[in-house]
Design a protein around this nucleic acid. Structure first.
Length: 804
RNA sequence: GCAGGAGUGGCGGAAUGGCAGACGCAUCAGACUCAAAAUCUGACGUAGGUGACUAUGUGUGGGUUCAAGUCCCAUCUCCUGCACCA
């Protein structure tokens, strides 16, 4: 009788051994492979089984790359510890965020260590560590000097619950991404990052990336590049012109009115005396609307300014309106309206009785009473002066140049991407290293004075006034100008959580460097990230910001690559019952701790993968873990019972072995990790059957152990030693499949009549077509009747007799 | 509204256009046991038949094909993202 599988004993034994003698060592010769997890923010709730899955996936991949290719694996872990969640948690618990963060880090680290992943804690980083945020601030100073960071007063997204401004990317359906409160507008002086300057590169370089198409598309849509023209409309009786942006310059003749956003700088001035009161009222009302209201009120509202503009193409006098369906911060904040060919303009024109002029023939004709806009750019131009008879689709492309030629505008492109609102009116973040000097203006803190430490403060609760809690600390705020020495004030806003996470992956490989963010030598050797694993929720946040930062650092020569993450994998979410997201408030959080205790780390690792395809969401159900535990127990017994039997390898065993190598490797390469686990079960069953039959050879068992090792490291290491391995299984070489050894001599072939399987025949694989069909017919016997119309033979697959 | 993904047994899920339901969970029966657990063996889409078998079956309706879960068209439902971006 073999000794029973005692997961606790084995896992503890190898955990200690690996701690003493790490299996992943850098000898300076091996090729590197950088496999990265999105680092967690250390919340007080600890890890649940969903977090585990991501870390298991990355560790399996890391160990596979170690075995297959002999890589030195860079697999670090750190803490995204600044920001709202950490601060909100601290406020709730009534402790200082630094303290609660440290506690949470310690707790989660303990949990992460249960995964038995290859994490190299020497590389650990923490975004709240001054040695780390020194460089977060350093990047900001560099951006400021490059003109990429600037101050601007404007109405920004404001979360009344978190009491801070938010970036565009942090507003989801008009609500705060973090807390779900309705986002309002607030006029604040803000630090902005000019990410829009990188819009084209961020868009074009997506082509270089091995990322899920979904994420690429989300970023493409978010950047939202469009081609069109700016057209200048003179205001009647005045010097000024109103410039609009349009993607449909072909419809210029159909512009019968124009609309400005209520926030447009010319909005007030355009009001004629009799309209002044109504215009003021409308502008005021619009300013009071929250994002949610603005999204929900689909019904168009608006007010006529009393002024008219002149359509530069035909001299038509057209009324100028204000409406909040025009966005102030996109394009020029003003549009020309072509009700015949735009749904929104049509709705507006209908409501306010503005003429509708059709300029593209629909189905070859002009429609008498339009009931809806014809929005397609296909058809012949009508009512369009010189442009009559042209094809709309052609004109759409040519019109910008034509308009430019006549001096009425210019060809242009636009992006939906907005500059990044970078200030937060909160305590728990990196202080923005800027001094406001009455004489010199905004002056960055000199680099040698960084880090600018976040001061201790008595009340770190948000003030809600639009000022950060730092503003109350006079001895900190009052300073002198680094340039002229005059009394000056420090910037009191802090950076958003994304600041540290936008570049942390660069720091891991040189985390103790006091002189540089990362040494060029180490960057060249270990970066960029080869494989990045995490949830899809950061598609237009962290993943976009990181690309922006990386491109900037490339531009200033810190690194020699301009994309941070070569390959990206998005794992699905693990939910509770009925697909409900795990959360403490719903009480459906499943902690991995008990499962590790009862079933072991190896079982949980396997089960995390077995629950479903890694890229899809999966509902967690504890019961299934018994299945993988049984598998490990059966495999354990198989190996121990047969390791000393000295069975001679047969052709069948060799075939089984190579098929196993082939199937497992292929599924692994395809990232189909759930079917890798089921594959192990399948081959285990086959090996058990074989062992019962006439025994099983040692080589096959050893191969199975190596294949299993990235998934269930402890049991594999133990069995490897039982099989005579003197060194770690992780120093073994990933086996490769021999096609010849896998080949069958005979194959079972389904024999069909009219596409329905009637019987099965066993045929040599190299049989000819005629013999195969003859054998098939013979096997069918009397089932075959009628006239044979056609005979199909697909070698190794199927015989189909078509009969009438 | 637009874009993307998904719909397969009681459940999670497998299937380069070629024998649908691998693998696992649950369930049922049997073996072992004084008994239970564990373990082992077997059954397990639906309908009919003692039976070998027959019919039917991958959201719905059409189509292409010798052959469709897989390809095409239409349609329904669910999920995700974007959403007045001119």
């Amino acid at each position: 009788m073999a000794k029973p599988y005692n997961h606790r004993e084995i896992e503890e034994k190898w955990r200690k051994e690996w701690e003493k003698h790490p299996v992943n060592v850098n000898d300076g010769k091996k090729p590197k492979y950088y496999c990265l997890d999105m680092f967690p923010y250390p919340s007080g709730n600890g890890l649940h089984v969903g977090h585990w899955r991501g870390y298991v996936i990355s560790d399996v991949w890391s160990r596979y790359k170690m075995l297959n290719g002999g890589h030195y694996i860079i697999h670090p872990m750190g803490w995204d510890a600044f920001g709202l969640p950490a601060e909100n948690y601290a406020i709730k618990m009534g402790v200082h965020p630094a303290k609660s963060t440290a506690e949470n880090v310690a707790n989660i680290k303990k949990q992460i260590n249960q995964i038995a992943a290859l994490y190299d804690w020497d590389m650990e980083v923490n975004t709240t560590d001054p040695d780390f945020y020194k460089w977060t601030q350093w990047i900001f100073v560099k951006m400021f000097r490059a003109g990429l960071a600037y101050e601007k007063e404007m109405p920004i997204n404001w979360c009344p619950s978190c009491k801070t401004g938010l970036a565009n990317e942090e507003v989801v359906n008009g609500k705060c991404e973090r807390c779900g409160a309705d986002v309002t507008k607030k006029n604040l002086k803000q630090w902005m990052l000019r990410i829009t300057k990188y819009a084209d590169r961020l868009l074009n370089d997506l082509d270089k990336l091995d990322w899920p198409e979904k994420v690429k598309k989300m970023q493409t849509d978010w950047i939202g590049k469009s081609y069109g023209a700016e057209v200048d409309f003179p205001v009647e009786g005045r010097e000024e012109k109103i410039t609009v942006y349009t993607t449909r310059p072909d419809t210029l003749y159909g512009a019968t009115f124009m609309v400005l956003a209520p926030e447009h700088e010319m909005a007030r001035g355009l009001a004629t005396p009799d309209m002044r009161e109504a215009v003021e009222q409308y502008i005021y009302d619009a300013s009071m609307k929250s994002n949610v209201d603005r999204l929900q009120d689909k019904e168009k509202t608006g007010v006529f300014t009393g002024s008219y503009a002149v359509n530069p193409i035909n001299g038509a006098k057209i009324p100028i309106w204000l409406s909040d369906y025009v966005l102030a911060d996109y394009g020029t904040g003003a549009i020309m309206c072509v009700p015949a060919h735009d749904d929104r303009d049509f709705e507006f024109a209908t409501k306010f009785h503005i003429p509708i002029v059709q300029v593209i023939a629909q189905d070859g004709k002009e429609i008498e009473n339009m009931t809806q806009a014809y929005t397609q750019a296909s058809g012949t131009m009508i009512n369009s002066g010189d442009w009559n008879g042209m094809e709309s689709a052609v004109l759409k492309k040519e019109a910008p140049a034509m308009i430019e030629k006549m001096g009425a505008g210019r060809k242009t492109v636009n992006y939906k991407l907005r500059d990044w609102v970078f200030s937060r009116q909160r305590y728990w973040g990196e202080p923005i290293p800027i001094v406001h000097c009455p004489k010199c203006g905004c002056v960055p803190v000199p680099e040698e004075q960084l880090p600018l430490l976040l001061p201790e403060v008595e009340s770190y609760q948000p003030t809600g006034t639009g000022e950060s809690p730092l503003a109350d600390i006079e001895e900190w705020v009052n300073t002198t100008c680094p340039v002229c020495g005059a009394p000056a004030k420090r910037e009191t806003n802090t950076m958003p959580q994304w600041a540290g996470s936008s570049w942390y992956f660069l720091r891991y490989v040189d985390n103790k460097n006091e002189k540089e963010l990362v040494s060029r030598e180490k960057a060249d050797r270990y970066l960029p990230v080869d494989m990045y694993i995490g949830g899809v929720e950061h598609a237009v946040l962290h993943l976009l910001y990181s690309r922006f930062y990386t491109k900037f650092l490339y531009d200033i020569g810190v690194i020699d690559f301009d994309e941070p993450f070569t390959k990206l994998f998005n794992q699905g979410m693990i939910t509770g019952k009925n697909g409900i997201k795990m959360s403490k408030s719903k009480g459906n959080v499943i902690s991995p701790d008990d499962l590790v205790r009862d079933y072991g780390c190896d079982s949980l690792r396997l089960y995390e993968l077995f629950v479903g395809p890694p890229e899809l969401d999966s509902e967690w159900d504890d019961r299934g873990i018994d299945g993988v535990y049984r598998f490990l127990t059966r495999f354990w017994k198989l190996v121990l019972d047969n390791k000393d039997q000295d069975v001679k390898e047969t052709k069948e065993m060799k075939k089984l072995r190579h098929r196993m190598i082939h199937d497992i490797t292929q599924r692994l390469e395809n990232f189909s990790l759930n079917t890798v686990v089921s594959g192990f079960m399948e081959y285990n069953n086959k090996m058990i059957e074989m062992a019962k039959g006439g025994g099983i050879d040692r080589e096959t068992l050893k191969t199975a152990v190596v294949l299993l090792s990235p998934f269930a490291p402890h049991i594999s290491e133990e069995l490897w030693r039982e099989l005579g391995g003197s060194d770690s299984v992780f120093h073994a070489v990933w086996p490769s499949a021999d096609q010849e050894a896998m080949a069958d001599e005979e194959k079972e072939i389904a024999v069909q009549i009219n596409g329905k399987t009637r019987t099965v025949v066993k045929l040599p694989v190299d049989i000819g077509r005629e013999e195969a069909i003859a054998a098939g017919k013979e096997a069918l016997g009397s089932k075959l009747s009628g006239n044979i119309v056609k005979e199909i033979y697909v070698p190794g697959r199927i015989i189909n007799i078509v009969a009438k």
